[in-house]
């Protein structure tokens, strides 16, 4: 069994009166593919945002590679961030840059790659996501599915150890979902990147996950292998939820 990479210890997060994460504990090992499922508003996305340092916890400790994320100095957080990539529900591509520049900007500015090196890698990644001919296009000229594939290539260009996927197909037209999910299956199969995935696509979750965490009311109420969770859930709430979405 591989080493533990991420650990949430008694993490609580509130937005105003609303407690979205309540004394949450869980951990993820290196190379694992973990899927977070559960009803909307159960705090799944907040977990990814906490890991990406887009939010701060109100209580508890988040450890990445053993080091605390909060409190920590900005330098440490920056080092941790470099190892983590994130793909957003609404892509968040930079609209004023070409597709290729979206992908190469951070490798050049953050990893210190040369432009040639970054662009060569960028074209490889575009080839991998099936958009080799779109490198000069602006994001607005692409379909939602294509934009999301660029966003995935952009995240991979930073050579992350961990990839956070935040409902990456929720904003897509139904006929574009399959292409993006196939790409992610391919990445899950061919790389050793640790993946934490928030999704409502249960078939996808079943395919790629080593472990599924069922959330409700800011806590993990059940966890286990996808076979266990999807075919023989223990918790009544999990059964209800799966009955509603499957």
């Amino acid at each position: 069994m591989s080493e533990e990479l991420i650990r949430f210890e008694n993490v609580t997060k509130r937005f105003g009166e609303n407690t979205v994460l309540d004394d949450l504990c869980f951990s993820v090992r290196a190379g694992q593919h973990v899927t977070l499922i559960g009803p909307s508003g159960s705090g799944k996305t907040t977990i990814l945002r906490l890991l990406m340092t887009l939010e701060k916890p109100d209580a508890g400790t988040i450890r990445v590679n053993g080091g605390k994320l909060h409190p920590a100095d900005e330098k440490h957080r920056r080092e941790v961030r470099k190892k983590i990539g994130m793909v957003f529900q609404h892509f968040n591509l930079f609209p004023h840059m070409s597709v290729l520049r979206n992908i190469t900007e951070a490798p050049i500015r953050v990893l210190g790659k040369s432009r040639e090196e970054a662009e060569a890698r960028g074209r490889e990644l575009l080839e991998m996501v099936g958009l080799a001919d779109k490198y000069e296009a602006r994001p607005a000229q692409l379909s939602g599915g294509q934009q999301q594939r660029v966003a995935i290539a952009r995240a991979l260009a930073m050579e992350p150890k961990v990839l956070l996927l935040d409902e990456v197909t929720s904003a897509l037209d139904p006929e574009l979902v399959a292409g993006v999910l196939d790409l992610l299956r391919e990445i899950a199969r061919t790389t050793d990147i640790t993946m934490i995935c928030v999704t409502h696509e249960m078939n996808f979750a079943r395919d790629i996950s080593d472990e599924v965490l069922m959330f409700d009311g800011g806590r993990v109420i059940e966890s286990g292998s996808p076979e266990k969770i999807f075919s023989d859930p223990e918790h009544e709430r999990t059964r209800e939820f799966l009955g509603a979405v499957l």
Partner: peptide, 21 residues
């Protein structure tokens, strides 16, 4: 949009780079 700031953070772009580019 806030998503632009978040994407820049997720890519580890330094603060001044995020502003400039």
């Amino acid at each position: 949009p806030a998503g632009q700031w978040e994407a820049a953070t997720a890519l580890s772009l330094p603060r001044h780079r995020t502003w400039l580019t």
